[in-house]
């Protein structure tokens, strides 16, 4: 779950955070600060390039436009290749997700139990596509803390369904943005790894490049965001089912 939040939130949001030392803070406070970094803006729009690389090095590319408001609403619309253009996903509060296929001219709700499934051939899951605060989903424990980095162990809160038993989040100790995440399955084996590259756009930290690798299959997904715009005054109606089908 945290994977989702980190990867996608990184694209869409940034928060201006005063550089500060974290030595004196507890795990919950640190996680809250991460959420503040990731969900700092009121809304965000960006273009996303999705590069899929299989274990043999073969690549394919997709493009999409993403809109997000707050930490509960997100619209994801594919723009390329032409065959996929218009396919859209809408993520709303209370685990509600919709899918729109333009060729069928109709939307369908996505069952909640598929949240851990792969999203459109990427290494991200449907769950990763939703916007949700980390502190709502995870119980954090500090594993390591020094001048430059903090490592948190995140364990899904009771009742949160996750394919991971835990994740280990490495943060920049000054600005609280994620640097990398390791994902572990139920047997404790590391199965995925994600690297983040953040840069500052205006007042917000933006994860302009995220690379997730499935260590079991060797498959890799890279997300590169461009044309990032913050605080454009998006309204709730931009995240309605009607907006999805437009």
């Amino acid at each position: 779950m945290k994977k989702i939040a980190f990867s996608l939130m990184g694209f869409f949001f940034f928060v201006w955070v005063w550089p500060q030392r974290a030595y004196t803070q507890n795990a919950e406070e640190i996680l809250r600060k991460v959420d503040q970094v990731l969900y700092a803006s009121k809304d965000e729009q960006s273009h996303l390039k999705i590069i899929l690389t299989d274990k043999n090095g073969r690549q394919s590319e997709r493009q999409a436009v993403i809109k997000q408001k707050g930490n509960t609403m997100r619209l994801f619309r594919f723009t390329a290749p032409a065959a996929d253009a218009g396919i859209s996903f809408l993520s709303l509060p209370k685990n509600v997700m919709y899918l729109y296929l333009p060729a069928f001219g109709r939307e369908r709700r996505i069952a909640s139990h598929v949240r851990n499934q792969k999203f459109a051939g990427t290494d991200f899951s449907y769950d990763d596509m939703e916007a949700k605060l980390l502190e709502v989903k995870y119980d954090p424990v500090i594993l390591k803390q020094d001048e430059n980095k903090i490592i948190l162990k995140l364990i899904p809160k009771p009742g949160v369904q996750s394919e991971y038993s835990k994740t280990e989040l490495t943060l920049d100790a000054h600005y609280f943005y994620p640097v990398s995440v390791d994902y572990f399955d139920r047997t404790g084996r590391k199965i995925k790894h994600t690297d983040y590259i953040f840069k500052k756009i205006g007042n917000y930290w933006n994860a302009f490049k995220i690379t997730m690798k499935d260590l079991r299959t060797g498959h890799q997904t890279q997300l590169v965001s461009t044309d990032v715009k913050y605080d454009q005054g998006l309204s709730d109606s931009d995240f309605s089912v009607r907006a999805l089908t437009r």
């Binding site: 594919f78 065959a83 996929d84 396919i87 899918l99 296929l101 333009p102 060729a103 069928f104 109709r106 369908r108 792969k118 999203f119 459109a120 051939g121 990427t122």
Partner: peptide
């Protein structure tokens, strides 16, 4: 069928491509 158009192959290639999109990665 789950998109509500019956258990058959769609006659429209675009529809096939978009259903395919959902199966990708399985």
């Amino acid at each position: 069928e789950v998109m509500g158009e019956g258990k058959k192959i769609p006659s429209n290639a675009k529809k096939i491509q978009q259903l395919w999109f959902l199966l990708d990665g399985q």
